[in-house]
Design a protein around this nucleic acid. Structure first.
Lengths: 297, 297
DNA sequence: GTCTGTGATAGGCAATTCGCATCAGGAGAA
DNA sequence: TTCTCCTGATGCGAATTGCCTATCACAGAC
């Protein structure tokens, strides 16, 4: 049973005229006759009553019409939906990200993506960078937003703008009054830092920053994620670097200050598994790029 | 696009294994490969990812699966429904009947039919016999229950049990006290009768009954339908014959009496247009016959 | 009567689909 | 490593299917 045959049936049921229906289906009248006859044989019931002065649906034909019409519609919809999926307009986008990433351009990007592509289900999964790499490699997520360098081969890395680092310190801190703080001011200061296993890039950057001044931070606690670090700062447990994005979310008891010399920014990147990013992932990435462009201007 | 091809796609999407899916579809693996390839070409999108260690749906394939499954289901349903319609299990039964017929076996038959064939829409249309004949000839109703003789050719007539006639008279009538009434008692009695154009059979029977006694009824009003006749009897406008069925519905102010010599019964019949009765009509008629058999026993 | 228009039928050509046999490449066992 | 098995893809000939052109049979209009 051919979808085209069903479409022929539906057309003939609407026109009740072989020649016109054939024309609408881009067929000749004998071909349509043959198809209908073959369909009737296959179904095992006469679907049309060919009277001398016209064509009419039999009761079997009436019963056949409804489902046949739906079958044709769904068959067409199948192709349409498949092509929409290729364009990334329907489907599922499993998006992994670090906490830090979600304090940047991501929330706006997700909101905008959802309104532009309402037929794409977006799964949001928060993980730290090493876990994101595993999830990408295992194919559990389509696209990850995390912090280079990556240790997993076969992942494509697409650089995003770095996140500058600022110092978070308790508002009652002796240095809170200064507009900018020198690294040397932080000597022997109780310091909060993410474990190197979780965030090697930020860890190494901070250590290097101190070493340039021949110092070494006094790490009193390794803490993750970075939002928890801010909480500990508010509790007076110490000071620590956070990204500008996290600093934008004001929190009572915490102030943020620039540090000189300026600490290197935290690299950000989108990553996906070879060989290719899903269409919806590509769409999302394009949208992120657009938003970054807009925020730059 | 073939329904079978879509079914192949669905099967493969479920098994994710060409050989097994091919077997389930009663095909060889190369044929299935070819069909899937052809389908992908027709759709214009890759639907399966043939990885080294297995087959997986692409996002386009996932989007294609839902509608494809529905298309297959509806295509199968179309055939099923058509065959059910042939057996009279789905569809529409347009049933015409006279008022008299509806005081007989019809209400029970309709109730029983509806419970046995809930997927058949039953249209009930009340008309007098001549109009029923026209409606049958015009194909506006499938089956009519009316009173022979019929004047329209090309109608098949299937006899049903006759309806005996009894006399309806006001309960205050001078003859109401008698158990049976002789025709001669009715000489010069104000008489109610359906017009001959509407009910020739009952008209002729009543006239013949009187003429056998060398009498002629004094018709004071021609009245139709028969239920209205009963109303006029209750109002004291006269007396008249009604069917036993109508007499069963008690009405204040009216009594029913047997007449001797016994008047001929009113013939009843089911009728339909050549060449054939619709399947649901046939089902209905079988049911009516069953009920008549049951009431006889 | 002829003419017009209906759907059904016959024949021939082209495309499709089938199964069989076979190929190419990866996984796992010896 | 090498062999074997299993995966899906491919080539080919036979059979089938689908289409179109030409034509038929029949009914209604003029």
């Amino acid at each position: 049973m051919d979808i085209r045959t069903l479409a022929c049936f539906v057309t003939l049921a609407e026109d009740l005229h072989f020649r016109r229906a054939a024309e609408r289906m881009n067929l000749t009248q004998p071909s349509l006759s043959q198809r209908i006859r073959a369909l009737e044989t296959e179904v095992g019931a006469r679907l049309f009553e060919r009277d001398r002065r016209g064509v009419a649906l039999t009761s079997a034909g009436v019963a056949f019409l409804g489902p046949a019409r739906k079958a044709v519609e769904h068959a067409n919809a199948a192709t349409t939906q498949a092509l929409r999926a290729v364009r990334g307009e329907v489907g599922r986008l499993r998006l992994g990200f670090t906490v830090i990433a979600f304090y940047g351009v991501l929330p706006e990007a997700v909101r905008s993506f959802r309104s532009r592509h309402p037929d794409v289900d977006v799964d949001l999964i928060e993980m730290n960078s090493p876990l994101l790499e595993s999830a990408l490699a295992a194919g559990e997520i389509d696209l990850g937003v995390l912090h280079p360098p990556l240790s997993t081969p076969d992942l494509v890395v697409h650089a995003l703008p770095d996140e500058p680092l600022v110092l978070a310190l308790p508002s009652a801190h002796r240095l809170a009054g200064q507009a900018t703080i020198r690294v040397t001011d932080l000597d022997n200061e109780p310091f909060l830092l993410a474990p190197r296993a979780i965030g090697p890039s930020i860890y190494d950057r901070v250590i290097a920053l101190f070493q340039a001044e021949c110092l070494s931070p006094r790490v009193v606690q390794e803490v993750t994620p970075m939002t928890t670090l801010v909480g500990l700062v508010a509790a007076g447990a110490g000071v620590g670097f956070v990204t500008a994005g996290i600093a934008r979310a004001a929190r009572p008891g915490v102030v943020y200050r620039q540090v000189v010399p300026r600490p290197p920014a935290l690299p950000m990147a989108a990553a996906w598994r070879e060989p290719s990013l899903s269409a919806s992932g590509r769409r999302f990435l394009e949208l992120v790029e657009t938003l970054i462009e807009a925020s730059r201007a």
